[in-house]
Design a protein around this nucleic acid. Structure first.
Lengths: 248, 248
DNA sequence: ACAAAAGTGTTTTTTATACACCCATGC
DNA sequence: GCATGGGTGTATAAAAAACACTTTTGT
């Protein structure tokens, strides 16, 4: 066992063995376009090497005195203005050679990425285009080759979204404040796949839970009977918060 | 918005603003003592400052060229010999001032901890006592004040264990190779709490799933009818792998 | 009038829950 | 023979799944 010959002490005696890191934070920001039933992810065009001109997640390196989460909020605020935001840590990618800058630097600085998972409302989210850097919502099935290992990070984020949808009310972080039950259903099907449930059953199950308030307002989308607009009632949901498995 | 005045470019122009990190890896290693029905976690006594003499999770700093996971395996192998090991990333804690060494160093090196969640079999796990450092299994409800933010990490790990128990077969990573259905039931109750299910129902549900193979071997624990020893049949489980929600 | 979308209800099947009861062993 | 833990079965309640049907709009 290689580690045994140097044991604990070596780390104190020969600190040169330790890797030096810069820590980056990358945000996988999801949203949904209710009108077109498309799941979206926010990409920005890199303005600097490495991967100049490549699409990537909005990211930044962590500054002195700054917490990881604060860094995540910082780039987010640089790229997008939102009223509502859901944010949680996703995963940490830290293998050597995941960032080409490592090779160039003979002192062996490593780049580690702590990724965050975010949900915003499409209509409320105002992208901050500074005229220089590209920024755009991409439908999930049209995401191109991304910088670094960001395609892998996206995989992770997508899986997290699918899982969270089943047992937590994250859908209401992405949907507009007022939505029809069909909007909600369509969102679930686009994320979870066609055959997750019958609309009629989905509908009655959700309504029975009692945290969807009918505003009485009707909305008409072309032909057909107008639908009621619903609102997520956080108070009514509160008692169910720690109960397992409420959706789907 | 403070970030706006320097924007992206500042990071390249004034790299002093970036924090320099050492990255640590800490393992939350769980096991069960089937005989006493106790959920255990592995702690080691710190041999150096800071928190000298304090109990903590086995951890190490990541070396040059070493991946996070490799570092996790490395300390694990230094502290314990196992035949079977389940390991996955848990969470990354990286706020400033989580490590007292940061304050001492005027150059502002930060210490970030990527925690890992591990499961091992108690009977097969051989602790490596080097005569110098303390190492011990602690029942979860007797864990003392730990070094750094390790009590918080433990919280996270415990929650992860509870969740995973419900939808994945991790129990069989901690239980001995051969176990009685009662062992399994007891494990679930100690982790999930008394009232998660009736024994009889738990039993028939699990058996119906078809991946528990009865070896026919009987074992007697004092009085009462001897119990059958079962084995987890990975092959029979394979087709259920990606199905949601199989347990509890 | 009729197609399209919204919304309701009913039937069937499956799963969960609560127990009651039989079985094999040690003392 | 009886206490102790192991193991089986059944009756009831609840939830999931399938699907038929009504209602309200636009054209």
């Amino acid at each position: 066992m290689a580690g045994r010959s140097h044991r604990k002490a070596s780390e104190a005696v020969d600190p040169n063995l330790l890797a030096d890191f810069k820590v980056g934070v990358d945000n996988v920001i999801f949203s949904v376009d209710t009108n077109q039933n498309r799941l979206l992810v926010l990409l920005v065009m890199r303005q600097e090497a490495p991967f100049l001109g490549c699409w990537s997640f909005p990211g930044t390196l962590v500054r002195r005195g700054e917490s990881l989460e604060a860094a995540a909020y910082r780039i987010l605020a640089e790229k997008i203005r939102v009223r509502n935001l859901y944010l949680e840590q996703l995963y940490t990618f830290g293998g050597p050679n995941r960032d080409p800058r490592e090779a160039a630097d003979s002192y062996g600085v490593r780049y580690l990425s702590v990724s965050y998972f975010a949900l915003v409302r499409y209509a409320e989210a105002e992208l901050i285009a500074d005229g220089v850097s590209g920024i755009a919502w991409y439908p999930l099935n049209q995401v191109p080759q991304l910088a670094f290992d960001h395609n892998q990070i996206l995989e992770y984020g997508h899986r997290r979204l699918r899982n969270k949808l089943e047992y937590s009310p994250v859908a209401f972080e992405v949907l507009p404040d007022l939505f029809t039950l069909n909007d909600l259903y369509q969102f679930y099907t686009t994320v979870l796949g066609e055959n997750f449930s019958d609309y009629s059953n989905f509908r009655s199950r959700l309504l029975k839970l009692g945290f969807l308030a009918d505003t009485g307002i009707k909305t008409s989308r072309g032909a057909g009977r107008p639908a009621s607009l619903y609102r997520f009632d956080a108070e009514a949901f509160a008692p169910l918060k720690n109960k397992p498995l409420v959706f789907i």
